[in-house]
Amino acid sequence: MYKNFDELASDVLALAKEIMPDRLIFINSLNDQHQIVLKLSDTDTKIRLTEGKVLNLDQTLCNRIDFEINEPLIYEDIKRESCLDSIRGTLEEANINSYVGIPISLVDGERFGTLCVGHHEASHFDKKSINMLQRIARMFSSYLDLERLAYKDSLTGLYNRQYLYKYFEEFPAAEGVLFFIDLDGFKKVNDEYGHDTGDQALKEVALRLQGFIKESQDAFAVRLGGDEFLLNFPHIASRDEINMLGHGLINCLNTWDKEYQLSASIGIVPYRADSAIKLNTLLKDADNAMYRAKAAGKNNYKVFDCVENSAS
């Protein structure tokens, strides 16, 4: 297994570069609004793209790829393509005049992104090379599926406990805040309405958590198991930020337009970049704070104070 996505992407681009050594190869991820350039085969190139660049999806060539038929999109001379007039400004800014886009989808059909080839001049792409790039893209998507099976919760689609430990192994010097979430009233939902309804409630909680962290840089959500979840917010250290997130998270999880009602008890534990405290200790402290939140009446949060060894 690769240690991280960057290592995997580097090997994928190296293989593609063997097929088209004189072209820029790059991997993108796509969401509903944006295309993000994840990895480039070269940095010294006449094409003006950089890793991490975010483009409006409707201004990109990748947006024209048909993921349903799962076929490559090829433009050998973009200047001659009148159908691209609406995005010509973006293409000229990037200095791209020939392009191949290979769709990358997961096994269940979910769109991930694209493996692309670009050149600043018009150029011919032979069928054999395109076929090889498609095979590389399929290998890449297969690995992504394996990684998702290893690190994603099958019910909610959130990261799982294994991913959390992997993250702290890869970034031992990071800092941030953990929010340990236990749902109030979930056992009653299971007992009165059945496990199918309980599963739907857990999926809804996962969607709310994903929406809650959407605007927070590098934050991620984890389902630890059962009705226990965790949010990790890197880069957040101030008490004011922690309290703002705590109040927001309580409000996010305590309003239900259903015959049943749920809320959350949350234990919060900050961790420092220079800390030698292990993840297991952080989880234990967060769990301690969460139980104090439950003892205080539920539907609230407590912050664990590492100095005083208590929750406040």
Rank of each mutant, 00 (worst) to 15 (best):
K17R: 03
Q261T: 12
I266V: 07
N31Q: 09
K294A: 02
I47L: 06
S41L: 07
E215A: 11
S310R: 15
I242G: 08
S98K: 08
R239P: 01
Q261Y: 05
F168L: 07
D184Q: 07
K17V: 03
N299A: 08
A264C: 10
Q59W: 01
G198M: 02
D274V: 12
Y271A: 00
F168R: 06
S98G: 02
N28R: 05
R161D: 07
S98M: 12
Y2F: 15
D287L: 06
D126G: 05
L149N: 14
Y159N: 15
Y193V: 12
V100Q: 05
F168G: 08
D22P: 06
L164N: 12
G185A: 06
A122V: 08
P270K: 12
E93Q: 05
D305Y: 01
I236D: 03
Q33V: 04
N299I: 05
E81F: 09
E7C: 04
N300L: 04
V177A: 11
D196S: 10
K298C: 04
V307M: 04
R272H: 13
F186E: 00
V303T: 04
Y75W: 11
G198T: 06
I242A: 04
P21T: 03
I213W: 13
V107K: 09
Y143G: 00
N70D: 15
I36L: 10
C62T: 12
K3S: 12
L230Q: 05
A219N: 00
A122P: 14
R88M: 14
